[in-house]
Amino acid sequence: MKKIKVSLYFPAAEVTKPITYHLIKDYDLQINILNADISLNRQGKLVMDMIGSEWNIESGLKYIEDQGIKYKLFTKTIIWQEEGCVHCGACTAVCPSGALQMDKESWSLTFEKEKCMICELCVKACPLKVMCVSI
């Protein structure tokens, strides 16, 4: 099994296609939608995890391409250098996915990598420069 994170960019005309349905049904892929910005007759963006066999993932990506939808794989990850962190919370102000949050009891920063969309806003917002991008 393999897991990838991918952004799909839908042209306005393609937003009505049930893409995720086909990815699940025809290619046996587990889909976890992380962020969706889709409205009728407008360009849309979908960020998701895809889990499946290497072959199914490759075929699924090809299917996406064949539907006229562009995709981009996430190759980078965000690294939280926790030892230098003061847990101020400045990064949580800009995190759109909720991956970075303050624990309401201990007021420690928590980072759920799974939710991260690698938008890199936290990298700039961190006053201590402890968030960085791995390439």
Binding site: V86, H87, G89, T92, A93, W107, S108
Partner: peptide, 13 residues
């Protein structure tokens, strides 16, 4: 509107 602190309560504690 989501809120975010800028001063560390963990450190203050």
């Amino acid at each position: 509107v989501p809120t975010a602190p800028l001063s560390s309560l963990k450190k203050a504690r």
